[in-house]
Structures are given as structure tokens and as C-alpha cells.
């Protein structure tokens, strides 16, 4: 085995450890929010603002005296929940669209491709900013904008997979056998698509968290006092010099979750590649 392959194996191992540790922390934190949440995330206590960590407030309090840990943990549920919703919607819209465009072709395909081209002409962030700017700030509008931006990726990927696969002999043989289009989709094409979709989704998951957080940070997404991480970052901006830890906590949380999402994506990609075992 070459040195390169060996080090790749080590990186893989390290990744698995990393992902396990982070997941463990996250799970513990989630369990904590459900079992021991003592504070109301929005309960202010101006007398005790910007406090250092104490037994009662393990990560201290923010500029309105709210418990930072509580907000951080609720933020996890919100941020992850929002991006999962956006992701699911994008997949549910994108995958059938791609399947139909790829299998049917014709005008449906052409129409769809023009729409997709239109979306792809602008970076995701720009479209999301414009849309949520037009529709007004708020997490609902932001999610709508994200779905509108992201579904195109899924549709395009599914379409190109379908287009390469339907030309192959095994699909021809299935057609000769009279298998219905639906059965061909389900039995023969879906296994090609599912892995790719999961990999893309787990990578997108991180991106969407970043998108929600960054748009909330500039005031277009979740609005105060919602404990969304981007919004928390935004709120703590004025206190950055005296109390930098208020920005560090949500920042770290975002980094950790995005990292897990990416490692998960890599792992899924390897897992769904049935050919990985073969060495030339």
C-alpha cells in the first residue's frame, strides 16, 4: 500500500472519530435542552446582563441578561430544523422534476432547463438576499427563498443521472421486457439517484445553515428575539470588544454543525459507491 493511500485511510479514520465526538456533544446538548432546560430563552434580567459563567448560567448571560446556553441550544433546534425543512422541500420538489425532465425530454425538459439556467446565472446568496429583500425580512420568507434557490440543484443532478443511465442497455432491456416507466424509475434509476441526492443534501445542509445564519446576521432572516445563531451573532456585535465570547459561542456552534454535515456527506458518498472495494 502506498504512503498516500495509508494517509488517506488515516484521514478517514480521524474523520469518523471527529464526527462521532461532535455528534456525541450535540446529542448530549439536545438531551439537555429537553431534560434540564431551566431558563426561558427570552427571559430578560437586565440587572444580571453580560455576566460571566456561573453555576446557574454555565455560559454566562447576554446583553439583556438572557441565558446564553439556553439560547444556543434552542438555536440548534431552530437552525437545524429550518435547514432540514428547506432541504426536504428542495429535494421533494427537485427530484421528481429532474426525473420527469430526464425521462420525458421534449418541451418539458427544455422549459425546465431554461428555468434552471436562469437560477444558476446568479449565486445562491444573491438570489436569497434579493428574494427575502423583496418579500420582507422573516424566517418564513427566507426559507421560501432558499428552497427556490436549491431545488434546481437537485433537479439538474437527477436529470443528468437519468439521461446517462436511460441510454444504457440495461434500461433498454427493461423496456423490452415491458417494465413501466414508473417501475424503471423505482427499480433501476432510483438506486443511482438516492446516493447522489443524499450526498448533495448533506453538503447542502451545511451550506443552508450558513445561508440562514448569514442572512439572519444581516437582518434578513430570523428576527430578534428568536435565538437563531446568525441572529445571535448579529445581536452580540456591539459587545464584541468587551465580551467577545458572546460571538464565539454561536460561531463555534455553526462551524461544528457545518463540519459534521460535510464529513457526513463524504461518508455517505463512500458508502453509496458500491465500486469502492475494487482495486485495479
Amino acid at each position: 500500500m502506498s504512503v498516500l493511500a495509508l494517509s488517506q485511510k488515516r484521514i478517514k479514520k480521524a474523520k469518523v472519530w471527529l464526527i462521532s465526538i461532535i455528534l456525541l456533544i450535540v446529542l448530549a446538548a439536545v438531551a439537555y435542552t429537553f431534560l434540564y432546560l431551566k431558563h426561558d430563552a427570552n427571559m430578560t434580567d437586565v440587572g444580571n446582563r453580560l455576566a460571566s459563567p456561573t453555576q446557574a448560567h454555565p455560559l454566562g448571560t447576554d446583553h439583556l441578561g438572557r441565558d446564553v446556553l439556553t439560547r444556543l441550544l434552542l438555536g440548534f433546534r431552530l437552525t437545524v430544523g429550518y435547514s432540514l425543512i428547506a432541504l426536504a422541500a428542495a429535494v421533494i420538489i427537485g427530484v421528481p422534476f429532474g426525473l420527469i425532465a430526464g425521462l420525458r425530454g421534449g418541451w418539458i425538459d427544455r422549459l425546465f432547463m431554461r428555468i434552471a439556467d436562469g437560477f444558476l446565472a446568479f449565486p445562491d446568496t444573491v438570489i436569497a438576499i434579493v428574494l427575502s429583500g423583496l418579500l420582507g425580512p422573516g424566517i418564513g420568507n427566507l426559507l421560501f427563498a432558499i428552497v427556490l434557490v436549491k431545488w434546481v440543484n437537485y433537479a439538474r443532478m437527477v436529470r443528468s443521472t437519468v439521461l446517462t443511465e436511460v441510454r444504457k442497455d440495461y434500461v433498454t432491456i427493461a423496456r423490452i421486457n415491458g417494465l413501466s416507466t414508473f417501475t424503471i424509475m423505482r427499480k433501476h434509476l432510483l438506486p443511482h439517484i438516492i446516493g447522489n441526492v443524499l450526498v448533495l443534501a448533506s453538503l447542502d445542509f451545511g451550506k443552508i445553515i450558513l445561508l440562514i445564519s448569514s442572512l439572519s446576521y444581516i437582518g434578513l432572516g430570523a428576527q430578534p428575539p428568536t435565538p437563531e445563531w446568525g441572529a445571535m451573532l448579529n445581536e452580540s456585535r456591539p459587545y464584541f470588544q468587551a465580551n467577545p465570547e458572546m460571538m464565539v459561542y454561536p460561531g463555534l456552534a455553526i462551524v461544528a454543525v457545518v463540519l459534521v454535515a460535510n464529513v457526513l456527506g463524504d461518508y455517505l458518498r463512500d458508502k453509496f459507491d458500491v465500486k469502492k472495494e475494487v482495486q485495479p
Binding site: 442497455d169 440495461y170 433498454t172 432491456i173 423490452i176 421486457n177 433501476h188 438506486p191 465500486k275
Partner: peptide, 15 residues
Amino acid sequence: QTVFQNPTASLNPKL
């Protein structure tokens, strides 16, 4: 029924 020239293309690699 049929058998084609290229056995690799005739079998779904994911099945």
C-alpha cells in the same frame, strides 16, 4: 428475450 453485446452495460451496476 434478448442478450446484448456488452454485458457490463446490460446489468444495472447498482443492483
